[in-house]
Design a protein around this nucleic acid. Sequence first.
DNA 1: TACTATATACTTACACCGTAAGTAGATCAA
DNA 2: TTGATCTACTTACGGTGTAAGTATATAGTA
Lengths: 227, 227
Amino acid sequence: MTTAKHPQSNDKKKAKRIPLTKAGILNASLKLADEQGLEQLSMRKVAQSLGVEAMSLYNHIKNKDDLLDGILELVVSEFELPPIDQSSWKKSLRQAAISAHQVLLKHPWAAHQMISRVSVNPARLAWSNATIGCLHEAGFSYEITDHAWNAIDNHIYGFTLQSVNMPIDPEEFSDAAKHYLPMISEEQFPYLCAMANKVAEGKHSGINEFEFGLNLILDGLERLLED
Amino acid sequence: MTTAKHPQSNDKKKAKRIPLTKAGILNASLKLADEQGLEQLSMRKVAQSLGVEAMSLYNHIKNKDDLLDGILELVVSEFELPPIDQSSWKKSLRQAAISAHQVLLKHPWAAHQMISRVSVNPARLAWSNATIGCLHEAGFSYEITDHAWNAIDNHIYGFTLQSVNMPIDPEEFSDAAKHYLPMISEEQFPYLCAMANKVAEGKHSGINEFEFGLNLILDGLERLLED
DNA sequence: TACTATATACTTACACCGTAAGTAGATCAA
DNA sequence: TTGATCTACTTACGGTGTAAGTATATAGTA
């Protein structure tokens, strides 16, 4: 049962035109991107989900790039920003990084967009400002703050991208390892085989933890402060 | 002057058909991807560069995904693998990470492909095996090796993706900061403005160093070994 | 209320994409 | 030389983003 959001075809003579809005287009797009992935997101599909024709979207958004910019902004506005508090900067940054990671997992298409486009949208600027503020108030110079911010971002987006692009469910790592092992020459790739064997035998889950690498970075930053 | 790689149109009656090969297709594709970016890489364009029609490619490659798999394998085979040497594991991993980063900068489309597809191609397996081997022989358990490998990869790909997608040349950071500063509310985003000001004034280059975050990770791993 | 201007949704069309299916030509083996 | 197989070409299809023009709805003014 299709919900007629813009009833053009039904009761054309009676219905008032419900105007499209940029917000409506962005929300529909976000929903489709989340459900079907970004590669399946087309202007025609967005339009169809709204009960209009694709070209109508262009009265409200400049182009597809504008639309992608807009939906990314919706996602980033879900990030929990680190409070700027000198005494618990490490805990704040860890929590904010975890929040960003979790939001990006909810929208699997978003990490790559995050890393692919520069933006001066408000949520994006707020995210940057809060991270910089937290680091700077912790005592880092702006130069080290910049490097630290970059290192943390590399981790968040790198980790998330690897996670969302992993075609195997964590619960299935053991079975997958068993499946791939025969394809891999133990003579050529002994260490890879040994590790895959650990996973196949259930001695190691094969699941990577977001906080492992993050802690290396945050602990290292803390030591910089002590120097 | 177009080089007729497959002379069909010229001297059709005299020339012997130079057969397409998968390697030829992959090399042409790699060249085009490097010159024009992956989004501009189409089967028609590859075919045109080889002097044939697009559908001919399908005798040699399964589909476009097979082609992308193939060109990524060419790139990964340029990576310098870490020697497996217990006494200088840190130096080896740093050098290998730098090598991978540099190769991926040479092929700006490749980092995202690296992070987007799972592969059992030989160069890919060799890269994984060498990293795992280096870490394991350094003394890490396979479980910690897995986490460490993941943290290093997050850094390499995260950093590289941010670099290649940065639309501003490092030499132009100062001018760009001056350009963007008026667009950003100092009241709303004080820290971001302050940092951008440092860059605009030339007091901080704004250039992120690959080794900053990498060193945090490697130093942190070293400390794990000492525990 | 009628008219006009503007906003907005629809339609037609285009260039481009990946690739299925069929046709034509080249090569190889007997 | 003939026939089989391989390989390049052609036609076509469903899909993409969006330019340009047409039709409809809305808002403002006299």
